[in-house]
Each structure stands twice: as structure tokens, then as C-alpha cells.
């Protein structure tokens, strides 16, 4: 549990951070995954750039009809944000389910999604929210969708030298209900499976539905087949069950000590049905 020697910089500006990153430094944004790996020497970065020192990455604000969340907003800040609670409760609910209090105080949304742990909680919600990710390099900035951001286990669209600047999520109208349901792995607090649901109804029928799944496979995804199956339906328990049964379609489920692939698939279906049901019950 003794890390190798490394350099640490707390940059004063984003440009300084980008400059350091372009010369091979590794970003530190909470360190809830990186620091334990360093203590075990599974990770041996030579230089850490602490992004949490940058005040201009730490914000949660509304602009242009969307919500902008700076990369270093902590899970606790997201969980307790009055703005998000009102305008994007799916994100506050998801943040509140992460790890434990200590992790939520230290960990950040940017650090979490850039690390792209296949069992992290945010990716399910961000997939369901069709979030946008603003990636900043030394020269340019680009925006990618959630579908393109999460590439594989621990792999994202971030290129070397780029940092995630902010995450943008939409503001749903009052007819939208959301829910995040998770089976917790008791040792780590990670999701064995987590399902985020976002549902709108119109005239007694589902007019819009987005489902984000995490933990089942190497990266979070939107269960589009299930979404299609539910759209236009009155969302009877049967409709929900039938749609939920499709969330694992075409997915290569992972297996580990804590849950076999079969059990994971089963849990995804169960939690999808529950998330949809709860989301609908929350429609104002």
C-alpha cells in the first residue's frame, strides 16, 4: 500500500492543466479509483495533475435550456444540488447511490465517467439522459454524445491530452418521470447492474422512453429495443415486463465472482421493469 514516487501539480488554470497533460501527466479528479490503484502499484503515474484544484471546472448551472455540470462537481454536490433535484432528479438519485459518504465527498463526475468503470452508476443515467460530453484539448473543444463517449471497459472517446470539461444534460418537462434502480455489490458499492429510466406519457400512453443500463457488460448502453417496445403503449405491467425483457438483447453480459452472466441478465430485466414502473409513478 505504498505508492511509487510521483510528481503532483495543482494547476492554476485549465490551460496549464492541458499543457501538463499533453506532456504525459495523468489527471487526478477525486482519486477514488486512481489512488487505490497507485497504492497497490497497479498504476504508476509519474505525474499527477489535480483537476479538483481548478475552480472553473466545478459548477452546476443552467444555461440555454440545458444543465451544465463541471467535471469536478463531486457526487455529493450533484446529490445535494437543488437545481438538479428540481430539473434533473435522475442525476441526483444516481449520485446518491454511489459508494458511500466518503466516496461521494471526494469523487467527481468527471473523474468517474472518464475512468469508465463498467460498473459505475453515472453512465446508466447519462445514457438515458442522452448526455453530451464536452472534451477539451489544448487546441480545440469537441462535444460527443453518451453513445459515443463510452467505448469499452475503461475506454472512452477521450484522446490523450484531452480532458472532460463538462457534462450537459437536458431539462425534462414535468411530464417526465425518472428512476435509477441498482443491485449493489456489497463489497465495493458498485452496481452489479443498474438501470436508469426516463419516461414521458401522453394521453395515457408512453410517448418517450430512454433506458440506460450499466454493469451488465463492458460499457453502459441504451436499451433501444426495449424503448421501442414500450413507446406508444399504455404501460400496463405486461407492457413493462415485455419491454424490460428486451434490455439484454444483443448484449454480451459479464461474469465475475459476484454475479454470473445469467444472473446479471436476469437482474437487468428485473431492475429495468422496476425502474420503468417507478419512473412512471413519478410522472407529475
Amino acid at each position: 500500500m505504498i505508492a511509487q514516487k510521483f510528481e503532483y501539480t495543482a494547476p492554476k488554470s485549465l490551460d496549464e492543466a492541458l499543457h501538463l497533460l499533453s506532456s504525459g501527466a495523468k489527471p487526478l479528479a477525486g482519486g477514488m479509483s486512481l489512488i487505490p490503484m497507485m497504492k497497490l502499484r497497479l498504476a504508476v503515474p509519474e505525474h499527477l495533475v489535480d483537476l479538483r484544484a481548478l475552480k472553473d471546472l466545478n459548477y452546476i448551472r443552467e444555461a440555454g435550456g440545458q444543465l451544465h455540470i463541471g467535471a469536478t462537481a463531486s457526487h455529493y454536490e450533484i446529490e445535494s444540488s437543488a437545481l438538479l433535484r428540481q430539473k434533473c432528479p435522475l442525476l441526483t438519485e444516481t449520485a446518491a447511490s454511489i459508494g458511500d459518504v466518503q466516496v461521494r465527498n471526494m469523487g467527481t463526475i468527471g473523474g468517474s465517467v472518464a475512468h469508465a468503470d463498467p460498473a459505475a452508476d453515472y453512465p446508466a443515467a447519462l445514457a438515458a439522459l442522452e448526455a453530451k460530453f464536452v472534451l477539451k484539448g489544448a487546441k480545440a473543444e469537441r462535444t460527443v454524445s453518451a453513445a459515443d463517449f463510452f467505448v469499452d471497459a475503461f475506454s472512452t472517446a477521450l484522446q490523450p491530452g484531452e480532458i472532460l470539461r463538462e457534462v450537459i444534460v437536458p431539462i425534462d418537462d414535468a411530464r417526465t418521470g425518472t428512476s435509477y434502480k441498482k443491485m449493489v455489490q456489497p463489497a465495493s458499492g458498485f452496481a452489479i447492474v443498474g438501470v436508469a429510466a426516463r419516461v414521458r406519457q401522453n394521453a395515457g400512453k408512453v410517448s418517450f422512453v430512454r433506458l440506460g443500463i450499466t454493469g451488465l457488460s463492458n460499457h453502459a448502453y441504451r436499451a433501444t429495443a426495449a424503448e421501442k417496445a414500450l413507446e406508444g403503449k399504455p404501460a400496463t405491467p405486461n407492457d413493462i415486463q415485455n419491454a424490460a425483457a428486451l434490455v439484454t438483447q444483443g448484449v454480451d453480459a459479464n461474469s465475475d465472482l459476484h454475479a454470473s452472466a445469467d444472473y446479471r441478465r436476469h437482474l437487468a430485466v428485473v431492475h429495468a421493469a422496476r425502474a420503468i414502473g417507478t419512473a412512471i409513478s413519478r410522472i407529475a
Binding site: 502499484r41 460498473a119 455489490q185
Partner: peptide, 21 residues
């Protein structure tokens, strides 16, 4: 080694990813 002791949760997914790559 260390990988085995701490990486149980990740071994399946990452091996799949490496094979796919």
C-alpha cells in the same frame, strides 16, 4: 499476484475487451 487479488471484478470484462481489440 496483485491483479488476481484486486481485479476479480474487472478480469472478465477486460479480457473480453482485449480479445475484441
Amino acid at each position: 499476484g496483485t491483479m488476481a487479488a484486486v481485479g476479480q471484478r474487472l478480469i472478465d470484462g477486460t479480457s473480453k475487451m482485449m480479445i475484441k481489440k
